[in-house]
Amino acid sequence: MPELMQFLLSGVTVGAVYALVALGFTIIYNASDVVNFAQGEFVMLGGMFTVFAFEAGLPLPLAALLAIIATAAIGVALNKLAIEPARGAPVVSLIIITIGASILIRGLTQIAFDKQLHRFPAFSGDAPIQIVGATMLPQSLWVIAGALAIFVGLWLFFTRTLTGRAVLATANNRIAAQLVGINTKYVMTLSFALSAAIGALAGVLVTPITLTGYDIGIALALKGFAAAMLGGMGNPKGALVGGLLLGVIEALTAGYLSSQYKDAAAFVIILAVLFAMPQGLFGRQSTDRV
């Protein structure tokens, strides 16, 4: 089944990117109950900054590092300037604020850079590798390995470090976390920085395959959001599974049914899952207290 293998491989590659975007959603949601629709823009910024730093003559690793730091800084600015002042606003308002932010970032990028598509060279060349009859770009391996490394790293961070546990505690109960002396404002800042950096890293990894441009963020944000909801908002494991699942479903639909409707398949699955499980695959059941 080389064909199936081919679809699975490309699905997992795309899914790894969705999973990273979904993870970014999850981290911010846990820290602040905000779904950040500008999450896709972080991926775009990561790619764009790297492209222009690289074209300005910096070596690729340094360019990538600078891009990730710069994007993280933008994430922190977003939190300080837009999310913190809107604390306690209704869900609709928060959706509009973050969508506004994504439109703003897109607009600024288009002015600061341009409207073209860009790429930089793949990390390990472009010679395809053969895996069980299917071909794969070495860069895909970078994407998958990068995603895995981030998930493992975050898992260690959340379970083994004091700061990580503070973030988890804040996610569980903000007031209780404040009472035991956790600086929840710092936790929020950290979450935005982390989530923006993860998005940017995803952008750096995937740009050699998919290219980047000022307007790639919306589609990624929608897919990542859908993946996060599919897995159950607020659950990192859900983000990983939701992202990979979405990527594979899309690849299989494109391969076997119709490439035009690959996006539709994703949404049909999400609607079906939400109807059967209104909290997503791994979401927590909530009971109203009255």
Binding site: L222, M233, Q260, Y261, A264, F267, I270, L271, L274, P278
Partner: peptide, 26 residues
Amino acid sequence: PILRLKGYYLAVASLGFGALVSMVLA
């Protein structure tokens, strides 16, 4: 089915519905 969902879940489900309509039209 959609309106049984709340908040962000309702947002994503309605978004999915809109996306499906526009995909069919396109």
